[in-house]
C-alpha cells in the first residue's frame, strides 16, 4: 500500500511540477519507517498513515512521501530514493537500526533538508534538527516502581526481555535500578523477542522450572498475551499479576475493566511518529521553533486513567 501511495504521490508531484512554477511553494516531507512486522510497529504505521492523510488536508502546501522498510538496507534505499527523485525538504525517520542509518541520514542533513529522528537515536550526535524520543530507561523505571508499589514485601518475579537491542538493555537497566533494595528478586530472565509465541514457550518453561512466581514483568503487551496463555494452561495460581507495556488496545481494555491479572500497563506510544510528523510540518510551515529534543515520557496506566489511552480503531 505504501508503494501505491508513494507512486501516486510521485505522479501527483510530477504532474504538478510539469504544470510549471505553481508547484514552487509545495514542500515535500519524506517519512521513512520500519514495516509493520510486529504489533507496536503496526500501530506506528497506522498512526503515520493517519497523520499523513490528515496533514495533507490541513496543509495544502505540503506533500508527503511515506515509505515502509522491512530491513535497514531497504530503509537506506528508501531515503536515497526520496532525496534523488523527490527532492525532499524534510525527512522524518524512525531508524531501523542506528548504525547503518546514520550515514544516509547525515547526507540528507548535509544537503540542507530538515531532519527529524524518532524513537531510536543516530550513532552520531547533532545530525538531526529535532529528536522525538521515547523514554526507554523511563519505561523500565515506571514499570519497576509499579512493581515495588504492588509488592511492598518483595517477592519473586520473572522477566521476559525483548529482541536483544539497546532499547531492551535500557529498559531492563531502568527496571533493575527501580527495584533495587525493594526485596523483589528477579529469579529468571529470558528473551521473548516481543513475540507472543516465543514468550508463551519461555513462560511455560519458567513455570516448569520455578515453583513459586509472584509476578511477571512481560515488558511488552504482545509478550504479556503469551505469558497469560501459558499461566492459564498450566493452571497455576501463584502468579498475582502480569505487567506488560506499550499500550496495546486489548490490554488497555483489560486494565479499564479491572482485570486482576492485568492491573496496569506502561505506555510507549507508537503514536510518537505522529508527534514527529506534526512538529515537522509545523516547523516547515510556520515560524514556531521546533528544533531540539522532545521526550515522550512513559506513563503508568491504571484503571483510573485507562480510558484516555484507549484507541479502539488502532490496530495496536
Amino acid at each position: 500500500m505504501s508503494y501505491m501511495k508513494t507512486l501516486m504521490a510521485g505522479c501527483t508531484v510530477l504532474a504538478l511540477s510539469a504544470g510549471g512554477a505553481l508547484a514552487q511553494d509545495t514542500k515535500v516531507i519524506g517519512v521513512s519507517i520500519p514495516a509493520a512486522t510486529h504489533g507496536w510497529a503496526g500501530g506506528m504505521n497506522f498512526h503515520a498513515q493517519q497523520t499523513v492523510e490528515r496533514l495533507e488536508e490541513v496543509y495544502p502546501g505540503l506533500d508527503f512521501v511515506l515509505a515502509t522498510a522491512s530491513d535497514p538496507g531497504k530503509q537506506v534505499n528508501d531515503i536515497e530514493d526520496m532525496v534523488a527523485t523527490r527532492n525532499i525538504d524534510a525527512l522524518v525517520v524512525l531508524p531501523f537500526e542506528s548504525d547503518p542509518l546514520t550515514p544516509p541520514v547525515q547526507a540528507v542533513a548535509e544537503s540542507g533538508a530538515w531532519v527529524t529522528v524518532v524513537d531510536r537515536g543516530l550513532s552520531v550526535e547533532g545530525i538531526e534538527d529535532l529528536y522525538v524520543a521515547g523514554d526507554n530507561p523511563g519505561f523500565g523505571r515506571v514499570s519497576g516502581e509499579y512493581m515495588v508499589s504492588q509488592m511492598p514485601e518483595g517477592g519473586k518475579i520473572v522477566v521476559l526481555r525483548g529482541i536483544p537491542t539497546t532499547i531492551d538493555n535500557e529498559r531492563v537497566a531502568g527496571f533493575e535500578a527501580a527495584i533495587e533494595g525493594s526485596g523483589i528478586e528477579i529469579i529468571d530472565m529470558e528473551h521473548g523477542n516481543w513475540n507472543r509465541d516465543d514468550s508463551f514457550n519461555v513462560m511455560q518453561d519458567f513455570l516448569s522450572k520455578h515453583e513459586q512466581i509472584d509476578a511477571v514483568w512481560a515488558s511488552d503487551d504482545d509478550m504479556a498475551v503469551g505469558v497469560l496463555a501459558a499461566i492459564d494452561a498450566a493452571g497455576r495460581d501463584d502468579v498475582d499479576f502480569v505487567l506488560g507495556g506499550a499500550g496495546m488496545k486489548e490490554m488497555i481494555k483489560r486494565v479499564m475493566d479491572g482485570d486482576e491479572m492485568i492491573p496496569a500497563d506502561v505506555t510507549y506510544p507508537p503514536s510518537m511518529i505522529a508527534t514527529a510528523i506534526e512538529l515537522t510540518a509545523v516547523g516547515l510551515t510556520s515560524n514556531a521553533p521546533v528544533s531540539g529534543t522532545f521526550t515522550i515520557g512513559s506513563v503508568l496506566i491504571t484503571s483510573e486513567n485507562a480510558e484516555q489511552f484507549y484507541y479502539p480503531d488502532s490496530p495496536f
Binding site: M1, T37, G42, F46
Partner: peptide
C-alpha cells in the same frame, strides 16, 4: 497477513 491484519494482530 500483514495487510489482512492492517499491520496489527
Amino acid at each position: 497477513v500483514t495487510w489482512l491484519a492492517d499491520g496489527g494482530t
